[in-house]
Design a protein around this nucleic acid. Sequence first.
RNA 1: GCGGGCGUGGCGAAACUGGUAGACGCAAGGGACUUAAAAUCCCUCGGAGCAAUCCUUACGGGUUCGAUCCCCGUCGCCCGCACCA
Length: 876
Amino acid sequence: MATERYNPRDAEPRWQQKWNEAKVFETDNADPREKYYVLEMFPYPSGRIHMGHVRNYAMGDVVARYKRARGFNVLHPMGWDAFGMPAENAAMERGVHPASWTHQNIDSMKSQLKAMGLSLDWTREFATCDVEYYQHQQHLFLDFLEKGLVYRKQSKVNWDPVDNTVLANEQVIDGRGWRSGALVEQRELTQWFFKITDFSQDLLDALETLDQWPDKVRLMQKNWIGRSEGLTIRFEIVPQTAPAGETEVTVYTTRPDTLFGASFLAIAADHPLAKDAAAANPALEAFCEECRRAGTSLAALETAEKKGMDTGIRVKHPLDSSWELPVYIANFVLMDYGTGAIFGCPSGDQRDLDFARKYGLPVVPVVMPKDGDAATFTIGDTAYDGDGVMINSRFLDGNTTDEAFKIVADRLSGTMLGNVPQGERKVNFRLRDWGISRQRYWGCPIPVIHCDACGVVPVPKKDLPVKLPADVTFDQPGNPLDRHPTWRHVACPTCGKDARRETDTMDTFVDSSWYFTRFTAPWEGVPTDPAVATRWLPVDQYIGGIEHAILHLLYSRFFTRAMRETGHVDVKEPFKGLFTQGMVVHETYSRGSGTIRDWVAPADIRIEEIEGKRRAFLLDGGEEVSIGSIEKMSKSKKNVVDPDDIIASYGADTARFFVLSDSPPERDVIWSEAGVEGAHRFTQRLWRLISEASDALASITPNPAKDGEALSISQAAHKTLKAVQNDYDKLWFNKAVARIYELVNTLSGPLAKVAAGEGDVAYCAAVRNAAEILVQLVAPMTPHLAEECWATLGNSEMLARTAWPVYDEALVVENDVVLPVQINGKKRAELTISKDADQNAVTQAVLKLDAVINAMNGQAPKKIIVVPQRIVNIVV
RNA sequence: GCGGGCGUGGCGAAACUGGUAGACGCAAGGGACUUAAAAUCCCUCGGAGCAAUCCUUACGGGUUCGAUCCCCGUCGCCCGCACCA
């Protein structure tokens, strides 16, 4: 029978409303079934959702719907990472208040997300800028403070001397402020820090337990935490060269074995010794200034040319007091890592070698590879930083690097300088405490009060929340809280005298470090219901971009530990399973080049293939534009595709299906019009096949065939079910799609046959069983279409409430295997043989194959390799 | 600069991570149906060759009976680098 085309504009809102009315996706904390918490990283409300969001949320939704069908009590919430700089920028540029800008954006993005048909529990929604959320964050801050997990210290910020404001790293471009263009300076401010370093060892050790995280993320975190075992060594300053009051300098090294290769010490520009030396030497002072102008970003620092300046200070070599080494100030030595001072061994470290060559310092090889020759081993332009055997190192010669490490550590631990050992073994971490102070308005206020008499006083919990004042202006740079007429003036909670509120707000990473915990009971009057939070956590499957691999995830891991220590939850790790998805990328199109280059949006062009070459033309006027590289979708390059447009023309199911189908989820997906059309054709094809057969199937009870002509149909369906189930468990959406395509191809003949009124009851029952399995397999990806198919097959219960099908073991077993037969590694034949044939039987059968006899040409086989169930290789 | 990752037909990819390289989809070409178009259906489709066959997983080496997969080196692209989110 002829049926109408599937119309997503009709079906999608209809099913969304039905799900909504039946509250299918609202989660009950009291539901006794096994829990499953699936979460996608919540979005920043920038205004519109983009394809990256569609991909992220489509993946999470497949998992949520699949797990729900498998019988889990699924929690799948959504919220908004709503504090941050863009809202303040909008306020400055367009005069809109950050709050109204943010809420408008949330409204439009929410309606876009709703149009996607996501199985979200919207009753738990919140935005981090809601006082109902951030007041609890202030509560947590106070608990952390009480527990000693928060402290203040001096720390550097990027300062724009023209705008008189603090700049984020991304606002510093080539060392200048992004708006003023002024050279950025570093300024010291007293700021709040979370003691993430209290957990350095635990955060490192527990990575082992996160076996459902990608190895690359664990490795990145491990390197970020950066545990090293080394030695602090105190160098005595040669008195005649010492600035007043200075007698020694302490370095941290992981390579004390190379001490005889030392040719200089390098200290950070902020090192106290550097400051003393600079005070008496204008050239040094100028150099330190130059170092400070680099901004606070490590990347900028390390890509800059390595520079240093001799301070004139000399230190005594710890193993030979007659040997003096120069002390340099160097722009690549950081005050916050180790002791802010290093010794340079040019032969064993590339950076030290470059430095030594530049400033004419000695290069003495002290380690050579095990098989090297000490007489001829030299260092040219490449340092040798590997393990090996000590040379040119007096009493260390001939020892391995490991042995030398121990010898030096032992000797220096036993040598006294003053009354203290000159060397001390030390475990060091690269991880630094988390600075959370931001000199900005649009963030969570830090709940403390500064009193001249009492010092820093926490806001009492009964006085929470500390609300952001709404009446602020953005007509000048800087933090509006600082210049607000009344907000900051407050009575000291301790002594009652006039005092001042802290005007810094919290880093927005704080907001996103516990939102997943708040989702478990967002209605609570305290940060969490500890029992509920403990039951829901950890998040079983967390999905988001790889760009968050380090900071967001590490901060969340810290926060969960800190909340545990303060009694808000009793789990250690927030995310059991982590999946990092790739980006959505698109071709770029442009006119002109260089500074007059003009980017063109994909919606404004058409692509033609002329003599095998793809060319792009403007829709308006037909001018040819050049096709550029494929890049991350961005506003500046205009290579964005608005999900709204796609949903309007093809429907949400097509958009969802496409972003899941083409590429492996962890890899980037290239958005292409042709690909979307292909996905759309699939949805139409599925609808046509099912709906045409539905009249014949609706009255038949589904039943898989155990024999007869329908057996292969049932086998195909049940094998696909088993395979796709596994794909969904592993988040291999693209593989699931390929298998579903295959099943559709297999079923198209039988469905057409049934639609034509052919086939007996047993046949129809098998086809209906297979068709239902097919519909249930696609349901997590294209839920609206699946509901429509499900209903047309005669089912009265919603598919969203239907349990996942169970495959029949008897239909998925294989009795025979097809073994490829290789001769000298090249495939020459195939052998079909019983699955449990032993090695001998396989060998005999293979040698009887015509193709093998021909190919061997009468030669005797030298060796026959039989890999059970896999392959046979004959070596001739 | 440092840390992490990726690279397979015209394109997105698959290959149960040492065992048939290119499943499935897109694009393209041919055919059927149609007055015509759309839609749909069928066939072809990595390269060379009439063929047998040979070549082919960024590039260059290595280990192995056998390498997309493991090892060494080179190139290109992407992510992060602590105040973007």
